[in-house]
Design a protein around this nucleic acid. Structure first.
Lengths: 412, 412
DNA sequence: CGCCGTTCCGTGACGCGGACAACAAATTCT
DNA sequence: AGAATTTGTTGTCCGCGTCACGGAACGGCG
């Protein structure tokens, strides 16, 4: 796993800061690999054995990691004393991840290492008020923390939302499919739970990109784009190993790229946005899918056999739009999420051909088009990642704000 | 000045690394401010006074900075002993910046702090072979290092090129207006000089963005886009305080965004790229400018009085394209460079109106449209910045690869 | 004009984190 | 089974940043 951390600009490096960074980086490696040997850690981090040992001991003292048998996992290569492993502790810290979809909400309890410990979901009415959805999500959360050992610490809650989220405070500026404007969903959920823990909220495509980068198909790829077809079309961008957020957190809104000025009207007020050609409603129309099944477009497309000319044309439109994205961002990998997964399975060649036709040679030659490695869980796991993030920046501080005994607290 | 530095992924922070980072950061502050007091440094970097003192002493011992009188500069506010200043040393390290335009090359000797010490330029034939241009640039460089004190050290050469530059090795993949393909211009210049110093090459729009971010109109703005109209149209992106490069270094190629599928053919092979509407040739045609003056379009436009309807339409097309850019990148500032400067001066209201019409409300509300603060020198100063960059990462190492006595060496 | 408060510089003592060396332990290769 | 190799552990040292103290320069005030 490679997530480049970014420094605040002009600040110097205090040696205490350096230590916190090192502690967090060790944890990041354990998180990424699930289990890792101390020898591997010394190699990857470029620090001395004894330094690594001290850091690992501190993590163990904090109850985050535990010793593992050396032989476990890889069979071993070469001679020498086998290195003792470091792995995530049972009953270690965990987060709650929420994936708010257009027609259902998924909630999971996820531990370090990305392990889904418990999981629950429920349908959500797309015309529901925010507080109703919040109450439903709170119910799922209560369900998911049932029976959690009291020692385990809740680090935070991460929420994936199909809409524009302001990064400064997590306000949902606009979620078209939920018909929400300026909703402080984090506060609503916390109020419904009666808790106070850190809440991180972000756009679903951004989180999909993050998850695919950390544990999906794009591990080791520092420049990737996750293009997600939900009802709307959005993209999440990882550039140089870091999430591209933009000034307000709205970067990656590719759905309203100018595609065909003579096209049909878009709900944004313009004409011929890309979304009017490859959005769910446009595709549903092209395949004569009833409008109440638009939210399940992925399943509908997955049931298709031979693609009709209309579907082929949609694939071409997808590829042409991707060409713009490839030209502008020059990613190494483009991951197609949401219903684009089954669309690509149907008309992959058309998409590739259209992309190759319109993209510039230089950015085209290094890009690959792939499906997500995490299936439909990308956004959920991405929500877990942003909730875990404070732990990698400063484990001690993050555990300081964490909550213990959440199971009994929410039950009683 | 704020340039966020990025860490390599999983590496731990050696305490030697921390010290180098701190030393470089001090220098970065001095570079940004020109002159700065030690007290200011302690405040900005959050380190102890004595730590700052040690770092400043080391920079002085290296001959990079020197003590300045306290009273100089700001009149002082509040009582107390005035803080001794730190400023860039005379005869300190310098770089050579090259701005390769479509019809002329500008070469400057630039010191730390962004001071242009010497400067020279010459016309360049747009159909020239790369080695001819390289020889001309080498001549300008010889001219610019004339009379340099032997003690001053040449840190590197930075080159700005109107084209696609591969970031891994600085190869110019494509420079349409120079008709270059896969040219290793850095090597050509070094060979013509008979020197061996670090050479950094990058796209002119990228460097314009960097320069405006460091010392231009976008100081303190971490998310900005410099949209440059030269003969082609390109953009440089700073996101989160860091240059957005993309996998190969080609990010920001906005000239070939799909604009009007029914439009005219573009030299890239597609139809209706944005460049066919707001590129130099399109504008020249709209204002009936003779084709041999296309390279001087900026001056031609600056001489205009009342804009004609055709020019107004061009402004609208510019604004519509900028809307796509604002939606996708969500910048806080968009800087219009090249001939877009005089175009904006003519039809600013049309550009703003078209942008407001097509951009999404959320990203629109935080963006401002401005002209460059460095005029036509943005790219040149950006070239100096990338050449200076190693000095801020590790001053000691950068001075190790620097050259002394360049003046006599190139003269003899 | 002289005193005082303020702010800053310089120096030395201290604490801490990381590197290094030496030794013990565990496993593979021959 | 012994040699070789690699790792974990411990103790020591060194470098770096912080803290505390004294001295210095300046403005304000009487």
């Amino acid at each position: 796993m490679v997530v480049t951390t970014r420094r605040r600009p002009g600040l110097g490096t205090n040696q205490e800061l350096a230590r916190r960074h090192n502690l967090g980086t060790v944890l990041r490696h354990v998180h990424g690999a699930g289990q890792i040997s101390r020898a591997e850690l010394t190699g990857r981090m470029g620090l001395n054995r004894s330094t690594i040992a001290a850091l690992v001991n501190e993590l163990e003292a904090l109850g985050i990691t535990e010793r593992a048998l050396p032989a476990e996992g890889i069979p071993r290569q070469g001679a020498g004393r086998p290195s003792a492993g470091v792995r995530i502790a049972e009953d270690g810290p965990f987060v709650i991840a929420v994936d708010l979809g257009v027609d259902r909400a998924v909630v999971a309890r996820i531990g370090l290492g990305g392990r889904v410990l418990q999981r629950s979901q429920a349908p959500v009415r797309s015309d529901g008020e925010a507080w109703q959805v919040g109450a439903a999500v709170a119910g799922l959360i209560r369900c998911v923390v049932e029976g959690v050992p009291d020692a385990a610490q809740l680090v935070g809650i991460g929420i994936s939302v199909p809409g524009l989220v302001r990064n400064s405070d997590g306000l949902i500026r606009l979620a078209p499919n939920l018909e929400w404007h300026d909703v402080s969903f984090g506060g609503i959920v916390l109020a419904a739970l009666g808790l106070d823990v850190p809440v991180s909220i972000a756009n679903d495509a951004d989180l999909g990109a993050l998850a695919e980068h950390v544990r999906g198909v794009a591990v080791g790829v520092d420049d990737l784009i996750y293009v997600s077809g939900n009802v709307g079309v959005g993209a999440g961008v990882i550039a140089g190993g870091v999430r591209l957020e933009g000034a307000g957190g709205y970067a990656g809104e590719v759905g309203h790229l100018r595609f065909n000025p003579a096209g049909r009207e878009c709900h944004c007020g313009n004409r011929g946005c890309w979304e009017t050609e490859v959005g769910a409603h446009a595709i549903a129309e092209a395949i004569h899918c009833p409008s109440d099944k638009v939210a399940q477009l992925d399943e509908v497309l997955a049931g298709f056999g031979e693609p009709s000319p209309a579907v082929r044309a949609t694939g071409t439109a997808l590829g042409h739009g991707l060409a713009d994205i490839v030209n502008v961002f020059n990613p190494r990998q483009v991951v197609l999420g949401g219903y684009f997964r089954s669309l690509y399975a149907l008309v992959g060649p058309e998409v590739e051909a259209a992309l190759a036709d319109r993209a510039l040679p230089a950015p085209l030659e290094s890009v690959t088009l792939t499906l997500p490695g995490l299936g439909s869980d990308s956004s959920l796991l991405g929500a877990a990642e942003i909730a875990l993030e404070p732990l990698f920046v400063d484990p001690v501080a993050a555990l300081g704000t964490a909550l213990v005994g959440v199971g009994t607290r929410l039950a009683g």
